[in-house]
Simulated scan of single mutants.
Amino acid sequence: MDTACMYCAQDQRLTDIMIEVCTLESSTLYLFKEQTYKGRCVIAYNKAHIQEIFELSKEERATFIDDVARAAKAISVAFGAGKMNYGAYGDKMPHLHFHLVPKNENAPKWGSTFDMMPDEKNYLTEAEYSEVIEAIKVHL
């Protein structure tokens, strides 16, 4: 693990922007606090500090992608997504992670790439975050 990495260190850099939902077989699912896209999460590989998906063995990759698919389905069902967007960038945070972003017609950025940090941000109350997390967990 790399202590300079917020996903490895699991420190305030992470908790300032995300809330842990649960751990899966090879990853941890986090709810992104900025909720313009209701249910938006990040899923991060948690077995080692890996930067690229090709660094995983075939078996590790299959397990991680299974976690991604399981989480994406839960989010999609929980929030009635018209389409799930998957973002795997990591330019500034080089740790294997995917943004899982439910999108709907007549909602922000339909038909386009989601905004990483929209100009008009949508933050929830603690109770609302709990409701969103529980809605996801019901479908995992």
Rank of each mutant, 00 (worst) to 15 (best):
V101A: 05
A9N: 09
S57W: 08
I17M: 09
L100C: 13
Q12W: 12
Y123L: 15
M18A: 14
E60D: 15
D67E: 07
F64T: 10
L96E: 06
N122H: 14
E52S: 13
D16V: 07
T15F: 15
L31E: 03
D115P: 04
G87Q: 02
E20I: 08
Y89G: 08
N106A: 15
H139N: 15
I53E: 06
M1A: 12
M117A: 08
I53C: 07
V101D: 01
L24N: 07
Y30F: 15
V101P: 02
S130F: 09
D16T: 02
I19K: 14
S27V: 04
A107G: 07
S26P: 07
A135I: 03
A44L: 01
E20D: 01
W110G: 09
V68R: 07
P118F: 01
A107T: 13
G39Y: 00
P102E: 01
A48N: 14
T125S: 15
K137L: 12
H99T: 04
N46W: 08
A72E: 03
T3I: 07
P102G: 00
L14P: 12
K38A: 01
E59K: 09
Y86R: 01
V21N: 09
S130D: 15
Q35R: 04
V21E: 05
V77Q: 12
M117Q: 10
L31M: 10
G80N: 07
F98K: 05
E52W: 08
M84P: 11
H139G: 11
E59A: 15
Y37G: 04
I17V: 09
A74N: 06
L124T: 00
T113W: 10
T3Y: 08
E52R: 10
S130C: 06
K109M: 06
L96D: 06
I43N: 10
K33M: 01
K73P: 03
L140I: 15
E20M: 14
A62T: 11
Y123G: 12
K38F: 00
C22A: 06
I50D: 04
A135C: 14
K38L: 14
E120A: 11
D67G: 09
A9D: 13
T36K: 11
W110M: 08
C41I: 03
A44C: 02
D66L: 08
G87K: 01
E25F: 03
C8S: 02
F98Q: 04
L29I: 04
C22G: 02
K109G: 00
G80Y: 06
K83E: 06
M18E: 12
K121G: 05
